[in-house]
């Protein structure tokens, strides 16, 4: 009731801001695989990026890899790390340090020529 005027005001803000948006850019597709390193809770992730529509490899993108634990959204997240391009076109590598084992949502953020975010659900277990 009383929050209504405030709410309308902010809707206005949101509309003005969203009005500036235009065409949809490239929609990215990512394949992520992570392998445990010698150090506990540290994982090497290989990322392969391609265009969802054409299938072409995406190169020259700023890739950042982070992770959240869905069951504890705020309590456990990982400081995002920059991924470096690997030898093959469209492949990148990043080394992430988790806080605990279990199910994580790995977030791959793309910036630069392509802006997008891909989320993968992965389970991380310690090395047997």
């Amino acid at each position: 009731m009383i929050a209504v005027p405030g709410f309308l005001l902010s809707l206005l803000v949101a509309m003005v801001l969203s009005g500036s948006g235009l065409a949809a850019g490239v929609k990215a597709k990512a394949e992520v695989s992570c392998a445990a390193t010698a150090k506990s809770l540290e994982y090497d992730c290989a990322i392969k990026l391609s265009d969802q529509r054409s299938g072409a490899a995406l190169t020259g993108v700023d890739v950042t890899v982070g992770a959240d634990m869905p069951s504890m959204p705020m309590a456990h997240n990982v400081k995002p790390v920059k991924a470096v391009p690997d030898s093959a076109a469209g492949t990148y590598r990043a080394r992430i340090l988790l806080e605990m084992h279990g199910d994580w949502a790995v977030k791959v953020d793309l910036a630069g020529p392509v802006r997008d975010r891909i989320v993968k659900s992965m389970r991380f277990e310690p090395k047997p």
Binding site: F7, S10, V13, A14, L17, S20, G21, G25, D116, R117
Partner: peptide, 17 residues
């Protein structure tokens, strides 16, 4: 992403609301 709202802009929307 489709409408090119930058992260900063979205943060401003959140704080406006």
């Amino acid at each position: 992403f489709e409408n090119d709202v930058s992260a900063t802009e979205f943060m401003l929307i959140i704080y406006g609301l």
